[in-house]
Computed example of a mutant assay.
Amino acid sequence: MKRLLAVVAVSAALLLVPQSARAADTSYRTLSGASNPDWMARVPDGRSLAALSIPGTHETMSIHGGDYTQTQENHGDSGGTLTAQLNAGIRAIDVRARINDGNTFTIHHGAVYQVANFDDVLDRLAAFLGAHPGETVLLRFKHECTGETGSCADATGQMSFPDIFDSYVAARPGLFWTPSVTRSSAAAVPTLGAVRGRVVLAVLNGPRGGRFADYGLAQFSGWADGSSTYVQDQYTVPTFAQIADKRAAVNTFLTTTNSGDPAKIYVNFTSGSGALAPPYWVAGGALFQQGVNPYLLGRLNAASYTRTGALMMDFPGGGLINKIISYN
């Protein structure tokens, strides 16, 4: 009975949601309104990645599975959505993978396959960076499967997640910035000039958080499931009423980013979801609650920050992407 009542409540709420929750604007669901394929090329070589304001996406490849799973506009399977984001100016991505047969990775959001494989991701990154060698892309890569209800289960009899990752790196020499993919030695935050044309691995996360070995940047040794010293990821938003709490968390972390260690990258997830707050509600707004995306654009227009850090967004609009880039 409780489950039935919950389903009825969710269904009723979905019927009541104002059209504006799905309506595109400059902050929300208008990715193609931005075109910034070479914005980093104009930034000096000596600038640290920590000093940059970087537009990013949460669950970058998640375009299938319905309202509670989709987090990005659908610009095509097999990595087409990633290419669209890169052309718009996205330079920080969040990719989640399942261990598949043949010691390969398939891209998932929970139990839902996103009709893309890790080869698709790397092909798209290599093609983009080959055409735009002044750019770099910061990658958060996560082992998605816990085997629990609602998650995925890995194929059996395969190599470990780090070993499979190493095989992908070895097959594509020159694509990754080498210091970030050496499991025995974490890297310091590089300058942009040192990583142009390369993918920088920020962290290699396990399915429940935590970092595999010393992959990625040394500052993210404490990157767990949720928030940590340099990461705001308050992802649980139980109902639409708590969207305000998520807005506050994003705003507070913007302040932390600007008062914090200038040699460190700060990663601010604007995303969230819950039983009565699917991702598109949190991003775009619903039931008279302002969404995080329009709120964030308003804050960036009204305030004067030295940097925004990496902002990891659901359904970003072109105006929001452009505004983040303008801080550079």
Results as ranks from 00 to 15, higher is better:
Ala24Ser: 13
Gly319Pro: 08
Val189Lys: 05
Gly272Trp: 00
Gln289Val: 13
Leu52Val: 09
Leu4Arg: 10
Gly285Pro: 10
Phe176Tyr: 08
Ala84Leu: 00
Asn328Glu: 12
Asp261Ile: 08
Asp314Ser: 12
Leu201Ala: 05
Ala218Gln: 05
Gly33Ile: 00
Ala97Glu: 11
Arg198Ser: 13
Ala286Ser: 12
Leu175Gln: 02
Leu5Cys: 14
Phe269His: 14
Thr229Ile: 06
Tyr266Ile: 10
Ser227Glu: 07
Thr136His: 00
Arg42Ile: 10
Ala244Glu: 05
Ala111Val: 11
Ser32Asn: 14
Cys152Tyr: 04
Leu4Asp: 15
Cys145Met: 02
Arg96Glu: 07
Ala97Thr: 15
Leu138Arg: 06
Asn322Val: 02
Phe176Val: 10
Arg124Ile: 12
His109Trp: 05
Asp233Thr: 10
Asp101Glu: 10
Gly274Ala: 07
Ile164Glu: 00
Ala84Pro: 00
Thr149Asp: 06
Gly318Gln: 01
Gly174Gln: 00
Gly319Met: 11
Ala24Phe: 05
Arg3Trp: 13
His109Pro: 12
Ser185Phe: 05
Tyr230Gln: 08
Ile90Thr: 11
Gln232Val: 04
Arg29Val: 13
Asp245His: 06
Val282Asp: 03
Ser167Thr: 04
Glu135Asp: 07
Ser259Arg: 07
Phe240Ser: 14
Phe128Gly: 04
Ala88Gly: 15
Phe161Pro: 00
Thr236Lys: 12
Phe220Asn: 00
Arg47Lys: 13
Leu276Met: 02
Ile265Ala: 01
Met61Tyr: 14
His64Gly: 13
Thr270Ala: 14
Ile325Pro: 04
Gly216Cys: 11
Lys2His: 14
Trp39Arg: 04
Ser35Val: 10
Ala41Gly: 11
Ala23Lys: 12
Thr255Leu: 11
Ala88Ile: 10
Ala92Glu: 11
Trp177Phe: 15
Gly318His: 04
Gly134His: 06
Phe269Asn: 08
Ser221Val: 05
Glu148His: 14
Ser160Tyr: 02
